[in-house]
Amino acid sequence: MKLKKFVGMTIATLFMFGAANVQADQLRVGVEGAYPPFSWKEADGTLMGFDIDFAHEVCKRLNKECVLVEQEWDGMIPALLAKKFDTIIASMSITEERKKKVDFTIKYYNTPAKLVAKKNPGFEGTAAGLKGKRLGVQRATTHQCSAEKLYPGAELVLYATQEEVFQDLASGRLDAQLSDSLQAQEGFLGLDAGSDFAFLGSGIDDVECQGVGAGFAVRKEDSALRDALSQAIKDIRSDGTYKVMNNKYFPVDIYGAD
């Protein structure tokens, strides 16, 4: 009898949590928190960065309360599909492969991907140059896709977070790494740890893997939300708010070509 009551209460509690999660005046945003300067976590747990600012600004324009949900990168799309949150604002590139699973808004920024290696590494950033070299990328990124396609001879090393990639590049376990050039500049090359390193070659040309810039992802059935978010991005770009947020983090405009 007691057990039955307990089980019943537990189930009721679970339902209550389930119900609390789908309030209409909330926008639950999936963010990463390990990708400075786009998103990172302060020691006290506060989330900061360009993506986070963008999320708050968008919520404000949609008149919704922002609920930031942290999610490991390689589970980001599955978590969106499992309705743990309603949109992803985490520097996610708009690619054909991802479009099979989710829908995207218009882009909110676009920066090229580049290789990073030791200064004067003694090899070139080409398929031939990277043959047999240890090349690090973050798992489940556009860079994993590009690395597999463009440098088939390289020994690919996969990491859960971009921070770990830089850690192993700095310690010498990797010969090179491929990632977003802006993030690499701000999150590694501009810091003490990255002072011996530099970009290897210019931005890679691979629209198939890299997509057409970063956008917010939503579930395919949420087209109304997608359009509202796209409109918010347009407004933010056109009324000058974008410039303020951009300049807080970056010396150049990261929106790319219009």
Binding site: G75, P78, E97, A140
Partner: peptide, 12 residues
């Protein structure tokens, strides 16, 4: 397994 999930954006 994680590589496969990551490559094709699968959950499980």
């Amino acid at each position: 397994g994680r590589w496969l999930n990551g490559r094709y954006y699968l959950a499980y």
